[in-house]
């Protein structure tokens, strides 16, 4: 069985652990460099990206995670996690750092403040069946992507019509929304399949 870590410095860690468990993965929280060594893949949860960035640096998991993602470890990030997996971040703090992994520029809090947070239905490439009900909370969007990035989903309607909100590059998956706040396992299943495929190599 593949072992998937959830970065547990801050944010909705328990929700991701539950979803991954329901997908049949062995999911464990990761806060320390030695814990990172025991996992095949890593999920970066929703939360406050500036806090997660600061704690990752201070507790010396930043470089090890950056390195493993660069070396091809499968990773999935939702919301703040998407920001952490971006090569370039707009509207962040000056000292904010990201692991990288996806050749994209992400704009933090792009949809607005909490009063603008919303739910909507989305079509996502690689996710079959009904549209996925997506929850966006002070969410980022993807401003631009490099050539090797696959755009999986865009929002439709409203003033953000057409904005990119789900991407994949190689073994790295990122969504601006929070599938972990619903009972729909399809995005986590997609990631668990990516992790299995990578392990089978």
């Amino acid at each position: 069985m593949t072992r998937i870590g959830v970065l547990a410095l801050q944010g909705d860690v328990a929700e991701h652990v539950r979803m991954l468990g329901e997908c049949g993965a062995d999911a464990v929280p990761v806060r320390r460099p030695e814990e990172l060594l025991t996992v095949d893949a890593l999920v970066i949860p929703g939360g406050e990206s500036t806090t997660i960035s600061k704690l990752a640096v201070e507790f010396e998991v930043f470089e090890p995670i950056r390195k493993r993602v660069a070396e091809g470890m499968p990773a999935y990030g939702s919301c703040a996690g998407m920001i952490m997996l971006a090569e370039r971040v707009l509207d962040g703090r000056d000292d904010q750092r990201a692991f990288g992994g996806v050749d994209m520029t992400v704009r933090r809090n792009a949809f607005g403040r909490q009063v603008d947070s919303f739910e909507t239905d989305l079509r996502i490439a690689g996710v079959d069946g009904d549209p996925l009900h997506a929850v966006f909370i002070r969410a980022p969007w993807v401003e631009s992507v490099g050539e090797s990035v696959e755009v999986l989903s865009r929002v439709t309607g409203g003033r953000a019509d057409g904005r990119i909100v789900a991407v994949r590059q190689g073994n790295v998956l990122a969504t601006a929304f929070h599938p972990e706040l619903t009972d729909d396992l399809r995005v986590h299943r997609l990631f668990a399949d990516m992790v299995r495929a990578a392990a089978a190599g």
Partner: peptide, 17 residues
């Protein structure tokens, strides 16, 4: 906007903080 899920979900993102 303004659903119970986005309101409660915002608090979920603050956990551990």
């Amino acid at each position: 906007t303004g659903t119970a899920r986005v309101k409660r979900g915002m608090a979920e993102m603050l956990k551990g903080g």
